[in-house]
Simulated scan of single mutants.
Amino acid sequence: MGGILKAVGGGNSHACNSLEDYLNQEEKVQNDERIGINCDPESFNDDFRLERAKHLIDKDARAYLHYVVSYRDTDGLTNKEILEQTKKLVEGIEKFKGHQIAIICHSDREHHPHTHVVVNAVNSETGKKLAFNKKDLEKAKELLIELDKELGIEQELKIREGYRSQSMKSYKALEKGELGDKNIWKVAIKNAVLESMEKAKSKDEFIKSLELKGYSVEWSDNRKHIVVSDSEGNKRRLSNIEKEYPALEGKLTKEGLEKRFSLNAIKENGVSLEELKVQYKVKSLKDLEQEKANSWKKEIKKTKTINRGGMEL
């Protein structure tokens, strides 16, 4: 199929620091698969910040731009080859010349090899901000196609110049994101929320996970709604996500999330879903989630007591 270049966005210095932490997690980066162009890929935020200070750039100004290059397993590239292919790509993009760039390969997704490219928004040589528009992105995609051809990788389907996919449905979704569709940020926030919800065992872990992805969370006892914001200032109420995705109804409320966190904690302690069904005399997880909040908390405490050999926590 060939490589796919996707523009993820950008953010200020605070978001850049969170992004650095997220991209350099040990479980995501194997065999130290990183490349730094005029910067240290493990501490690129500090290097970027020094350049901004040198050119007297406001600390709240956009600090970076973020891109992802991904390949399918069927392309047959190793992680090292994907890393090198990404390096060739960024070195071939004229507008990136003079900018510090961190390239980090994530190996945690077995069937989705990909690299993250973080570009300092300020040119080290001129002090000017990077202006990278839709036409520049299309040119970069065409360059990636040519680089793939040199490795004998042909695109599986070319529907329109600069874009390719395996189906019209996935092509449309990809095109919207790459052309800067105004609503694509909504999908990004939704995906980040679901990913964090799947693993978090508490409210604090949930919020920290989203912050590491570059998002901020407003969750207050005095407010009904939970709000997640991206680095560009786009805000999303979790209740609105529920309205757009009926399958999530009731799962993104404060009570629904707390129930999910408790379930995640139980599962980590070694209690399987099947054991929970037997213990609580229910037929499905849906039935379990319909229990009242107070009853749920009592049952959680019972389970923890059993797991700790009968000792109260």
Score class of each variant (00 low, 15 high):
2 G>H: 03
3 G>V: 08
15 A>P: 02
16 C>Y: 08
19 L>D: 05
20 E>M: 15
20 E>I: 11
23 L>F: 14
27 E>Y: 14
38 N>Q: 10
38 N>S: 07
46 D>V: 11
47 D>W: 10
48 F>P: 10
51 E>F: 05
56 L>K: 15
64 Y>S: 06
71 Y>N: 10
72 R>V: 00
74 T>C: 07
75 D>F: 04
76 G>W: 01
77 L>G: 03
80 K>A: 11
81 E>R: 12
82 I>A: 12
84 E>K: 07
92 G>N: 13
93 I>P: 04
93 I>E: 05
94 E>V: 11
97 K>S: 12
99 H>V: 13
100 Q>F: 09
101 I>Y: 08
101 I>D: 06
101 I>Q: 07
103 I>S: 01
112 H>E: 09
112 H>G: 02
113 P>K: 07
113 P>C: 07
114 H>C: 04
115 T>I: 01
116 H>R: 12
117 V>P: 01
124 S>C: 10
126 T>R: 06
132 F>M: 14
133 N>D: 15
134 K>N: 12
137 L>N: 06
142 E>M: 14
143 L>N: 07
143 L>V: 09
148 D>I: 07
150 E>G: 00
152 G>T: 09
152 G>Y: 12
153 I>W: 09
156 E>V: 10
156 E>G: 14
157 L>K: 15
158 K>R: 11
158 K>S: 08
159 I>P: 03
166 Q>S: 13
166 Q>T: 14
171 Y>W: 13
171 Y>G: 01
177 G>D: 11
181 D>H: 15
181 D>K: 05
184 I>F: 14
187 V>N: 10
189 I>N: 01
189 I>Q: 02
191 N>K: 15
192 A>Y: 07
194 L>Y: 02
195 E>Y: 12
198 E>Q: 11
202 S>L: 11
204 D>W: 03
207 I>R: 06
208 K>P: 00
213 K>C: 01
213 K>A: 01
213 K>V: 00
216 S>R: 15
219 W>M: 10
221 D>R: 15
222 N>I: 03
223 R>Q: 09
223 R>N: 08
226 I>K: 03
227 V>T: 13
230 D>Q: 02
230 D>R: 02
230 D>K: 02
233 G>C: 00
233 G>I: 01
238 L>V: 02
239 S>L: 08
239 S>H: 03
239 S>G: 01
243 K>N: 11
246 P>D: 04
258 E>K: 14
259 K>A: 00
261 F>C: 06
262 S>R: 09
264 N>P: 10
266 I>D: 05
270 G>W: 05
277 K>H: 10
279 Q>H: 12
284 S>T: 08
289 E>L: 15
291 E>S: 07
309 G>A: 06
312 E>Q: 05
